[in-house]
Design a protein around this nucleic acid. Structure first.
Lengths: 190, 190
DNA sequence: AATTTATTTCGATGAATATAGAAATAAATT
DNA sequence: AATTTATTTCTATATTCATCGAAATAAATT
């Protein structure tokens, strides 16, 4: 498995970790290297099954086996565990997991990547109207159709994106993404 | 899921992460909260299937849903990801994964826990012979039956456990765990 | 070369689970 | 209260995958 984890590599890694006996194998190998039969008897399962598990773990880069006399001795490789762990810690990178699904188009994604922090706040508003609109729609997603929000609620929900909540609220209305009731100040998506 | 991860909690977490569509859901929720239908259309799968996936993720503590008008809006919970990541980084704790398998008995495990560092080195040799023997057998596991090792190899393999390799090598022979050929200095397990 | 030993591959079976569609539930609007 | 809308639960089906035993492979000893 390469150092840079693609989505499918992450998937094979999690799949490799998603089995009781494979976790036990990892635990045993974390103590000491073992050959196939030792693992089989420790887990009370067949040697061919252990061999299968080791192959799965090996494809995920989690173990490495080397022939030593009659036996092939397997040892734990901790690097993939470490890189995965760091990856999970910077969970903002998890956004990439959705990449191959048809959510945003390429242009929009680029704008968002440029003008939105990993935490989801607007760094600054672009000058070009077209780009501003991408961000407006980005924040609009927070509001579900069919629900009425008070002006206070709207401001509250926008606060996590930017300090200039009024500007965004006005943009929602100006660009006809939201309607507002004249008096009471209720907003809803169109 | 509790803060302290038991083995089975780790397993449910990895199982939850071991599916393509669930990873995509996590990716989408890392960007923004979503309701079930939004996720279903983004992934091109049925709403009931998404509901099932969200239930799996929820049992693992990875998402949380709250009712909001017509919709129930799901958001990503990053804490379990963080604790899991830290757990993987301190991979010496992975040894616990093998705990419920019938490898060592309780006494031996306790001795090893006391006198062996997380990295696998001998901190110090106990005074009681019975306890020393546990450590001797612990190191003996590194050597596979049927294979001959030169004295140099034996020392080399023991070096990762202790500086006093000669003591251990002698103990192997004294306690009849290993035999040695008189002249050439070849060792093998009995 | 023949034999012994450990591991891997192959083929088959059973269990777990992802998926869809229908029915039931819940929440809000009329 | 009846209706609309979204979600969940239920039921059934298809796929994935863990497991075993047998056969094939590989490596070392005789």
């Amino acid at each position: 498995m390469a150092e840079l984890e693609s989505n499918s590599e992450l998937l094979t890694l999690f799949k490799a970790l998603a089995d009781k006996n494979r976790l036990k194998i990892i635990g045993l190998l974390a103590q000491q290297s073992h050959n196939v039969e030792e693992l089989a008897s420790a887990l009370s399962i067949g040697a061919s099954t252990v061999s299968h598990h080791l192959s799965v773990l090996s494809k995920a880069g989690l173990v490495e086996g080397k022939v030593q006399g009659y036996y092939s001795v397997y040892s734990l490789q901790t690097r993939p565990l470490e890189t995965t762990a760091k990856y999970l810690l910077h969970w903002d990178e998890l956004k990439g997991l959705a990449s191959d699904s048809a959510g945003e188009d390429v242009f929009e994604r680029k704008i968002i990547a440029t003008f939105v922090t990993p935490e989801g706040r607007i760094k600054a508003f672009p000058v070009q109207e077209k780009k501003v609109l991408v961000l407006i729609r980005y924040m609009l997603r927070e509001f579900k159709p069919g629900i009425e929000y008070t002006e206070k609620q709207v401001n509250q929900m926008l606060a996590k994106f930017t300090k200039d909540t009024a500007r965004v609220r006005r943009a929602f209305v100006d660009y006809k993404y939201m309607a507002r009731e004249g008096g009471g100040g209720k907003y809803w998506r169109i």
